[in-house]
């Protein structure tokens, strides 16, 4: 069984949602993850906080971010077990963030140990 990271990309991280709306999204996300975990295919997952985020640039300059020049921001990720990329994609298709227009879920296989990526 392989492991895949499902990366949530939000088109606009600056959008302010109400606490009630946040709670609904959270519940939807937990139901989605719960369904994957009920198949024993869930490994780990985390949300990524937008508040107080920083970007460190190549000249070590630090900016508040990732807002402004970058349009897309990461909202979180989960790692799942799947037999194939297709199965991992089928998990991603259930992700509730896809209800937001412009949001995407990127599916990437994890490379373990001394394995050469590619």
């Amino acid at each position: 069984m392989k492991e895949f990271m499902l990366i949530f990309r939000h088109e606009d991280g600056k959008k302010i949602a109400s606490p009630e709306q946040m709670q609904i999204w959270m519940k939807q996300t937990m139901d989605w993850i719960g369904g994957i975990a009920a198949r024993n295919k869930f490994v780990v997952g985390n949300g990524l906080d937008f508040d107080g985020a920083r970007i460190v640039h190549h000249d070590k300059m630090v900016t508040n971010g990732p807002f402004g020049e970058i349009k897309e921001t990461l909202g979180g990720y989960i790692i799942v077990k799947a037999d194939s990329i297709d199965e991992a994609v089928s998990f991603a298709q259930g992700c509730p963030i896809l209800a937001g227009e412009g949001n995407t879920v990127e599916v990437r296989r994890l490379v373990h140990g001394d394995e050469i990526p590619g």
Partner: peptide, 25 residues
């Protein structure tokens, strides 16, 4: 109960928890 099973399964999978979660669903 559904939310609690969602979290329980993330901590520790078991067939019983998976079935109970589906019942709650």
């Amino acid at each position: 109960i559904l939310q609690l099973y969602n979290r329980l399964l993330q901590l520790q999978y078991s067939p019983v928890a998976a079935l109970n979660r589906t019942y709650a669903l």
